[in-house]
Design a protein around this nucleic acid. Structure first.
Lengths: 229, 229
DNA sequence: CCTACCGATCGGTAGG
DNA sequence: CCTACCGATCGGTAGG
């Protein structure tokens, strides 16, 4: 079960900040804790993950973990912060793609899909937070995503004025639905793949690609009056 | 916090089966436990719900709960069974609606939506199970839903041959996506409503209706070549 | 970053 | 359906 059992030989030279002790692979203990916690919270949920399990996987003792994050709640907050930071990094690229036109729309969409496909734990984690703490999640989205939502909303409205997007699309709702679709496609991929693949072999990636393709199609056909084929 | 604190005065007349002691409202203790467990598992997750909390809410002691369900795992299984039984009850009606045509498609869709809207805990519960136990969930879906999925798949294929449904729709995947869309719309409604409604007032139902309407539109426009307006 | 330890709570059992 | 109780594990602290 342990992830990196190697003992850290540098234990007491007394001058490095303990939050950034050098590792062979360049990752700090703090980063390792965040990475493990992200994965475990996504897989088993916050309540279903013990600090002990995280500490074991990182290869430290529980009190050491609590030195880096002073409570389990703080750890959860930091995990979410790290996730949202990574998201903020891809937003500009998404926005550049989304400014207009169907081809660009598709590029923007696959940018978002890529963000979650690159690390499916992100999708599962966000979904769990939505279920576990809807109020906090709402606040978080308002703080970090409302600007993005507004921009996309405006782009859709422009498309409606130009007559290329269905006039009865509800832009804001459309966006939330699209994101929900992406999240559940990635987060639920294990189940969907299991349904698509007859009991026997599991061509996981194939079924996932098939799932993503249909999702993008659904998003496009629901938006553009004359979707390109 | 307690739901029904009233003491059951009939404690020892010695002849009724303990699994069906009469209640004023006609529900057995067993049913009350199932109902409370369903709601709590949906709200806080299986791991986040203690048997103590369920027992408190029902108004009995924990060991009494374990008399009705011999372990927490068994309780979870029975909760899911009860949910799937209710689902099986609406399937015939859905199928009758879905046999052909756009109007009928819409009726079938709103039948499914109604099932979850009637008790949103169902959507949250299924979503959590998908995240917590993907393998068991896959098996459960295969056992209880594969027949339904096959029928809808065939209906879509027929529509494609008749030229009313886009030929590039992937029927099986389309169905899973639609269900995912319904589930996340209902299960995530609290968050979505929070996003749609500016910080102040919360016209919950209005925003939810708006969300459901757009969801149905998305499903229709993604399926039919010339959607009726 | 560790050892040693805490009170609280967990799911579950014995026995009536 | 209850009282009484179990060992295990939980998040967290003291102190180094």
């Amino acid at each position: 079960m342990a992830r990196s059992q190697r003992k850290v030989d540098s234990g007491s030279e007394g001058m490095g900040e303990s939050s950034t002790p050098a590792r062979g692979d360049g990752s700090t203990t703090r980063d390792q804790i965040l990475a493990t916690a992200t994965r475990m919270f996504a897989d088993r949920g916050f309540g279903g993950t013990s600090l002990q399990a995280i500490a074991d996987d990182v290869g430290i003792k529980k009190p050491s973990l609590l030195y880096h994050f002073k409570s389990k709640t703080v750890l959860r907050e930091k995990v979410l912060e790290a996730l949202l930071e990574r998201w903020q990094a891809v937003v500009p690229q998404v926005m550049r793609s989304a400014t207009s036109g169907e081809r660009r729309f598709e590029a923007a969409l696959s940018e978002v899909v890529g963000f979650f496909k690159q690390d499916p734990a992100r999708a599962r984690l966000l979904m769990r937070e939505m279920l576990d703490r809807p109020e906090e999640m709402t606040a978080l989205i308002r703080a970090h995503l409302s600007h993005w939502v507004m921009l996309v909303t405006n782009t859709i409205r422009k498309g409606q004025e130009e007559g290329v997007i269905y006039p009865d699309v509800d832009p804001e709702v459309y966006i939330t639905q699209s994101v929900a679709l992406i999240l559940s496609t990635i987060a639920g991929s294990e189940v969907v793949v299991g349904i698509l693949n007859p009991p026997g072999e599991n061509k996981t990636t194939r079924a996932l690609e098939r799932s993503i393709k249909e999702m993008v199609r659904l998003a496009r056909y629901g938006l553009f009056i004359h979707p390109e084929r």
